[in-house]
Structure formats: structure tokens, C-alpha cells
Write a protein that binds this DNA or RNA. Structure first.
Lengths: 340, 340
DNA sequence: TTGAAAGCGCTAACAT
DNA sequence: ATGTTAGCGCTTTCAA
């Protein structure tokens, strides 16, 4: 049993306890430089006995190196960003870098604040969702002098590197698929957020492609807040009552799509014969549904992995083989709610 | 347009640009001490023009204060911890403290590693899930000399403070409810994780209470990995085939419960007449299901809020009114899958 | 209201 | 293989 210190332990304490110079203690604790086995042992014993935890603040200041990667995302509440995160963590696990997460709630001002806060810890790199940032945020990212990877989206001009999918293309592909399947009366449901640029781009790609085929969205509905599953259900009920001749429902995310699917099936409506449905994201959740909802994979985990690889490579002084923009291909999963 | 610096800017740069001493620049940037309006303006202009971002590493080392709160949780992948997190963030927003999240994947060794890593940044407090930690982790938490709040669970001995529910009690309450409703042939489905102590305690409370009423679990099944919804479906199918006379299915979380519910309804089985079901957590998701699954609220957001309040209070030198242990009451939501 | 000096705990760079 | 010296960029403390 050791005593509870008021003052946190320092290298000096370990040095005194082990009779080894501070510098050598530092070497042992970082596995850096040559230290004899005997000395190493003495130091490690002393450190463990005292319960010494190194002070990274001092270390970082002295070495001018911080092994942190700032990861800035809009939300943790919908399964898509956690999956990106696990791609990042998993990849960084093989390096000495560590992710630190900041959440913006889709608010540009909050993004600015979070970014400023994180940069003030002088991280080794930044991974940030989206290509749309305030002037100030862009300036900070550029000034920081560290690798920056913008993720999820490739429709725009990256500051440095970028990994994602083209959401316009995703919307377009889905529209093409729907048109090819012969659906004509199409309803759209999505989030109200004007700040979710990726949802907006998908919608644009979608409507534009429909327009080229002479089709216009027959009805649309937007929501915000609440249980996405319940909202999908409600919106769908309202919409098919209002516009009974719809033959396709496109949802901007899988969760509301799942709610809509459950509702439609309960009504005994033939899917995908009478009505087709599709969502977006390719979330794992869909696997347990009564029918497999058509969706489009957003490559979330892969985006995380690739982004982390870029940061790691740049941090190690290597250069990135694939160029500044990596556009992954969103893959359609037709499931069984979309006739082909 | 300013130039891209290779060397990050320092206080000194702002000092030179504004013609004000470093010390006064520091005062302005922290709103600390008296500075004349004119000087303040000069400094702020210079800082903004240059795009200066303070170096918190140096600041923290000099002031011996870090406004970070380490939050250590097992996972981000199931909606329960993100909700705790948002309770924490929301509460800390009113203070100058900031949460930093670490994830353990339910692995004690990883918990130890993450904790060590976070403590080495000398945070102002720690919020950590669960009451079970390795010897080393406990020692670190005790040695750290900072406020520690263990969350989610109250069945055990906290190191410092603790906020949560009694999972044994939650299991017991559910069992009582099921017994009162007259169910007798009960099946249990849950995660395989031997390291999810809270799930284990719920199970213990559950079986023990059943035993007192002379009832034994009639069948049980455990899973790991994969889509929880799909797993709930699969396990349920397997179980009712194997043990057709079951009249109640208790799931250790809502997601597998939802999968089970969907399956049971598809089979045309009368719920809750022939078979009753219940999950655990009270996740928002349930609201969109065809039937409202019975569940028990784990008070996740409130736990986060209370934990953050404790850290904030202790950090401000105040003391905590409610004593070291705050046990919230898990509330049963009978939904419509449990007859009463 | 402002400035100067002295460190915070560690590590880079150089001895030895 | 080990030790010494001089900072890292801030803030504390004290002086003006």
C-alpha cells in the first residue's frame, strides 16, 4: 500500500527512488536510447512501486510532439459516425497515434469552437467530416501546418486530403436504379437539417437525375428530432394518405426507411410490387428487419481506415500514394424492397 | 491572406505584432487581470490577424491546470453510451470543463491502457463506467488525486463517487413483474460477454428472484457480435423451436428484444397473451416498433448529467450534496408486450 | 495597468 | 551507457 500523494509524482521522484538520473529514467520509460538491463529494471520497479504516471503535458512541450489526432464529427447518435470512428481507431492502433473526438452537432459555430479547442492541443493531424467549413475554420486548418483529411464527402474542394463518397453520385445512382425498375411516382422523406450538406447533395443528385427522365418528386416530407424509426413510420403514414398513388419511397437514411418499411408491411401493401422503398447508409440494423431494405453503402468504416492511414503516413514522413482525393464507390444493396 | 507558417505562432509573435508585452497579451487572451481597453483591442486585432491559436500544452504546464474530464466507456456502438455522453457534454457546457472520451471495448487491459493514457494528460476528473476495474486501474484512480465518478452501476464499492442504477434491482423488478403477470416458462437471451458486469448483475437479480418464486429459467441463449436485431431474431427462432412451451422471453438489451419481437409477430403469435417479451435500456428506437416492447429505463442521460455535475462541483471546490453514491431508480415501461 | 523573472516537468542535444 | 545543460511556450509571482 502506497500513500496517496497530493502532488502528482514526477520523473524526479522516480529518479530519486531508483538512484538513476532523470534523463535515464526518461529513457527507460520511453524505451528510447540504450539503457542497461539492470538500470532499466531498477527504474521500472521504482516507477511501478510509486505508481508513476508520466506527465504528457511536459513531455509534449519539451519534445514538440503530440501523438493525438483530432477527429471532428457532427454527431455520435446515429451509428454512422461511430462506425467511421472505429475504422479510425482500429487503424491508429497500429501506430503511436491516438484519436480524440469532438462533436459539432452539425453547427458551424460549434465546429469552429471545437476545432480551435483541439488545435490548441497541437495535434499531429485532423480528420474532419465534410467539406463545408466556416472561413475561420478553413483558415485554422490551413494555418495549423498539420495533415488534414476531410471525410465522408468528395463533392467539393478539399483543404488538404479527402476521403469519402460522392453523395451526388449516390443520389444519382439510386435514381437511376429506381427509374430502371419502372417506378414513376416517387416520394422523398428526409431530415429537415439545412446543414446536413451530404443529405442535401444526395437529394440534389437524386432529383436532378429524375428530372432528366422527366420525373418530378411527387411528394416530400422532412422531420427533425425524435426517434427516427417512429418518424419514418409517421411520415410514411401521412404521405401515403396524402398521395396514395406513390409507387416509391426514398428515405434519406436507413432508420426512417426502416420505420416506413415496418408501417408499409403492416398495411399489407405489396413490397416491392406496389411500393418500392430505399434508404441510405447500409447500416447493420437492416439485417434484422422483416425485409431487407434497399440501401446504399456509405463505406463508413473504410473511410475511417483510409483517413487514418493518410494521417499516419504523413506523420511518418511518407507520402500518400493515392493523391489528395480518394473517392470510394457507393454500392447499391437492392435488398428486397426494390424490384429489378 | 496571411502566410502559412511552418512554425506555429507563439504568444511572442502576437506580442511583437501588437507591441505589447507577452504577459499582457496572455492576460488579454485569457480575460484575466486588468488591461486597458485600448491595449486589449490592439492585442485582439493582432491575434486574429495572425490567426494565433494558443498553445494549451504550455499553458497547462505553466498553470498546472487542465480543463479536461476523462470519460471512459466500454463502447460507442449501441446507443447507450452516446446518450450518457450527451448528458455529460450538455452539463459540462455550462462550465469550462471539456469531456475527452476513451473506449475500452469491455476489455480490462484496454481500460487500464486508456486510463493510463488519459491520466498522463492530467485531467481535472475522471468519469468511468462500471465499478469493476483491475487492481492497477483502481490504484491509478486513487493515486490520481482528482475527482472520480464511476457510473452506470451502484452494486459495489465506489472508489470515490458513483452514479447509476442497481442492475441487480433492475433484474429483480423485471422478474417480479413477470411473475405477477403469471408467466411461468421463461427464456433468457443475452450477450455472451462475461465482462459485461451490468448485464451479469441483471441476470443474477432476475434468476434469483425467479428462484424465490420457485421458477427456473427454462431456456437461455447467448450471442456475440453481428447485428443485434438479426441476432435477436435468430436466437428467438431457435429458442421457441427448441422450447415451444415458453411463455416469456427476457432479452438483456432492447435491440435483440426488438429483433425477437419482430420475429414473434411475424409468426402470428399472440403478444402478450401467448408470449410476453421484455428488453432492457429504454432506447428511443423502440418507439417505432409495431408494438412497444416492455423495457426498463437505465436513466442514461441523467447518469451523465449527475456525474458531470459532481465533477464540476468538486472541481470548483464545492462539495457534493447527495453523498458519494447516487442510486437512480430504474423505471419499468410495460409497453404492450407484457400483460399486467 | 503593465512588465520582468522564474519556473512548470519533461526531452533534445550534447557531453562524458 | 549515463549524465548535464538548456530550453519548449506559457503563467505565476512580484516589482514598477
Amino acid at each position: 500500500m502506497t500513500n496517496k500523494p497530493r502532488r502528482p509524482l514526477t520523473l524526479r521522484d522516480v529518479s530519486e527512488a531508483s538512484g538513476v538520473s532523470e534523463m535515464t529514467v526518461s529513457r527507460v520509460l520511453r524505451n528510447k536510447g540504450d539503457v542497461s538491463a539492470a538500470t532499466r529494471q531498477k527504474v521500472q520497479d521504482a516507477a511501478k512501486l510509486l505508481g508513476y504516471v508520466p506527465n504528457k503535458i511536459a513531455g509534449a512541450l519539451a519534445s514538440q510532439r503530440v501523438n493525438l489526432v483530432a477527429v471532428i464529427i457532427p454527431s455520435l447518435g446515429n451509428m454512422v459516425f461511430p462506425e467511421v470512428l472505429s475504422g479510425i481507431s482500429e487503424t491508429l492502433e497500429d501506430t503511436d497515434l491516438q484519436p480524440v473526438v469532438g462533436v459539432t452537432d452539425y453547427l458551424p459555430e460549434k465546429e469552429e469552437k471545437v476545432l480551435f479547442e483541439m488545435l490548441s492541443w497541437r495535434p499531429s493531424g485532423v480528420i474532419i467530416a465534410g467539406l463545408e467549413h466556416s472561413e475561420a475554420s478553413q483558415a485554422m486548418l490551413r494555418q495549423a501546418g498539420i495533415p488534414v483529411v476531410e471525410i465522408m464527402d468528395t463533392d467539393g474542394e478539399p483543404i488538404d486530403h479527402c476521403v469519402g463518397i460522392s453523395h451526388r453520385r449516390a443520389g444519382r445512382k439510386m435514381a437511376e436504379e429506381i427509374i430502371a425498375a419502372g417506378y414513376k411516382r416517387i416520394g422523398f422523406m428526409g431530415t429537415k437539417m439545412p446543414l446536413d450538406h451530404r443529405a442535401r447533395k444526395r437529394f440534389e443528385g437524386f432529383t436532378r437525375t429524375l428530372a432528366k427522365a422527366g420525373i418530378e418528386i411527387a411528394d416530400q416530407e422532412f422531420y427533425s428530432g425524435g426517434s427516427a424509426l417512429a418518424k419514418g413510420r409517421e411520415m410514411t403514414a401521412k404521405m401515403i394518405e396524402r398521395t396514395p398513388d406513390l409507387d416509391f419511397l426514398y428515405y434519406s437514411n436507413d432508420m426512417i426507411g426502416a420505420g416506413g418499411l415496418l408501417y408499409i408491411l403492416e398495411q399489407g401493401i405489396d413490397v416491392p410490387g406496389k411500393v418500392g422503398l430505399a434508404g441510405f447508409n447500409g447500416v447493420e440494423l437492416l439485417e434484422g428487419l422483416p425485409r431487407q431494405l434497399a440501401t446504399m453503402d456509405a463505406c463508413r468504416r473504410e473511410i475511417g481506415q483510409k483517413a487514418a492511414q493518410i494521417i499516419a503516413a504523413l506523420n511518418a514522413g511518407e507520402d500518400v500514394p493515392d493523391g489528395p482525393i480518394i473517392a470510394l464507390e457507393p454500392i447499391l444493396a437492392a435488398g428486397d424492397t426494390l424490384r429489378r
